[in-house]
Structures are given as C-alpha cells and as structure tokens.
C-alpha cells in the first residue's frame, strides 16, 4: 500500500543501518558470551547487582532490549544473558524474561529464580501469578482494555456501546472491566467465540450491538490469519476496531494504544531497582506511559474525522488521570 502509518516510515538506509548494528551485536554477543563462559561465577561485589535476561526467540530484539536495559539501569548493575547454569549458580539473581516462552522456560527451572516477566500479556501472566515461591512480577505488554476502550470512545464520542469477542470460559474475567467502563458511561457486552468455526457468526452478532469492537489481546481470535476477515466484516458494517496491538494497525485496524519499548525498559528498571533494594518485586503493572497509533487512511475510508495521534494521546492521558499506574487485580 502506498500510505504507511505515520510512525513506521523508515528509510531503507535506516533499515540497513539497523540491521547492520543488529548483526554486529549478534557477533559481539557470541564473542562476549563465550568469554563470559570462562568465568562463569561472578565476583562477590557484582553478586547482588546481577540481572539475567532470558530472551525471546527474536535474537535481534533481545540484543536491543539488553542494550536499553543497561542504559536505563546504569553501570552499577550488570545485565547478562540468562542461562539455566548461571541462574542455578546465582539463585538470588533476578531473571528478566522476554515473552511468554522465556517466562515458561525460567519457571520450569528446578529452583525457580525471582522473575520479572516482560513482553507478556496480562492473560498469559495470570497463569503464573498466584504461584508461591520466589518473587514474581510483570510489566504487561498488552494495552489495558480500559485504556483501549476509552481510546475508542475518544475517536467515536457518540459511540457508547462496546463489543468484545472472547473465548469460552473467559467471560468472567471481564466483569471488572465492564464495571469500570460503566463509570465512563460505556456499556460493554461479550460475545463468545466457541471455535474458529463460529468466529464470523459471533462477530456479526457483536457488530449489531457495539459501536466499535474492542479487540482483546487473544492470539486465538486476533491473528494474522483472522484479522483481514474480521476487519472486512467490521468495515462493511461501518464499525471500527480498536486494538489489540500496534502491528494490527498496520493491517488496517483503526487505532490502538501501545507501550514503546523504551517505556517498558524504564518501567522494568524501576521494578529491578526496587527488587535490588528490598528483595521484593512490586506488583505486576501496565506501564504508565503509552503511545497512540492510528491509521488515517482507514479513517478517511470510513468517513471518520480523526484527530492527530498526539492529540488523542494527550486526551486519553488526561481522561485516565495522569501519573497513576494501574495496578493489576
């Protein structure tokens, strides 16, 4: 397509440079980690200031994130790639996991280390949250649904009915959200998607109720294979879709909020520092900061007058009340 979403335009030269940096970093890491393997046990003075990063399957992202974390944490805290051996040897060291698979890996270790889960959805983390044992917390990656719903309301002020597609058995998870939405004058209803076979049937019913569809972060419902169909059905019925994430805006979703990686790193460093001071991890949170990404071309197609993303972001922040991080339930 000719019109790319505003914030994603990058020149080819820029891409090439980033890729080259990524490549060089991979090489540097390989060299670095083999060097590290020779002195596996760190010295005493770095002991309490060691953070291990259990990366995702995306090596380039891992490198970039470790760099970011190092920058935000400063020189006194050592950040290293996680291996089970190091973690076993340093059971007190905090492990930062990137993504659901990394968290799963770390949590399956025979002695579980204190863990801060990043790049993970609230839903995914709920599976681990109530385990006893060493400290465990998270910085959620998925945008909080209240924030997403309010973004939809800002874009469509006359729309006050919200539809959500959910998987069977998940319905009660949204009770609190529905109450919160009511305090903003928004009404929400859930439509269950029993299986992929009745996705469109449920969606069609959802669209007869909702002024907009609030997409929950559920890979079984919203994924690259289903999103095109969902969007076409919604747009043909003159309904918009908000969320679930930034990549979906590129695929044609009207708008979403998202957390920039820098903000995740900042939120993580606050948790890490708190842990290093007290030995305890603050509760799981959605990062306070967020950005708004919109798709102007889709808005034009739907004849929806849409403010600038920065304006929506400011309005949304004032609506949510600045400064308070939303605590997890």
């Amino acid at each position: 397509m000719t019109n790319r979403p505003q914030t994603l335009t990058t020149s080819l030269a820029g891409r090439a440079r980033r890729l080259l940096i990524a490549l060089m970093s991979v090489l540097a890491l390989l060299v670095g980690s083999s060097a590290g393997a020779q002195s596996l046990v760190p010295t005493d003075q770095s002991f309490s200031h060691l953070v291990l990063v259990a990366g995702s399957d995306n090596a380039a992202f891992n490198i970039r994130f470790i760099e970011l974390l190092k920058q935000t944490l400063g020189d006194r805290i050592e950040v290293r790639p996680y291996t089970e051996a190091i973690s076993q040897a340093q059971p007190q060291a905090l492990v930062v996991s990137l993504g659901n698979r990394a968290l799963s890996r770390v949590q399956q270790q025979s002695t579980r280390p204190p863990t801060l889960a990043l790049m993970i959805d609230e839903d995914q983390f709920a599976n681990y949250a109530n385990r006893n044992g060493p400290p465990l917390s998270a910085i959620y990656y998925d945008p909080p649904l209240l924030r997403q719903a309010l973004l939809g309301h800002l874009i469509l002020p006359h729309g006050n009915q919200v539809s959500m597609l959910v998987r069977p058995g998940q319905e009660t998870n949204y009770d609190q959200l529905i109450d919160e939405l009511a305090s903003y004058g928004l009404k929400a209803k859930l439509f269950t998607v029993d299986s992929e076979d009745n996705l469109i049937a449920s969606l069609a019913r959802a669209l007869t109720y909702g002024d907009y569809l609030l997409a929950v972060s559920d890979n079984a419902i919203y994924n690259p294979r289903t999103i095109k169909h969902i969007l076409l059905t919604a747009y043909r019925r003159n309904r918009i879709v908000i969320g679930p994430g930034r990549a979906f805006v590129r695929a044609g979703v009207l708008a979403t909020t998202y957390t920039p990686v820098d903000d995740i790193a900042r939120a993580a460093s606050r948790h890490i520092k708190a842990f290093l001071q007290s030995g305890r991890l603050p509760p799981a949170v959605h990062p306070e900061d967020f950005g708004v990404e919109i798709n102007q071309q889709v808005a034009r197609s739907l004849n929806i007058p849409l403010p600038e993303a920065s304006q929506l972001e400011a309005q949304l922040k004032s609506l949510l009340g600045a400064g308070t991080e939303e605590e997890a339930p």
Binding site: D57, G99, N100, I120, S217, P224, R246, R250
Partner: peptide
C-alpha cells in the same frame, strides 16, 4: 514458531522492520 502477535509487535517496536502482516 512463536506467538505471532507478541513477536510481531516486538519487531515493529524494536526494529521497524516489516512485521508479520
């Protein structure tokens, strides 16, 4: 092989390279 959305978002956020969609 991984949850497509999380990684797709990661990639977009981190690298600005073309994502899964």
């Amino acid at each position: 092989s991984v949850p497509a959305q999380v990684l797709a978002d990661n990639l977009v956020a981190a690298l600005d390279v073309s994502d899964a969609f």
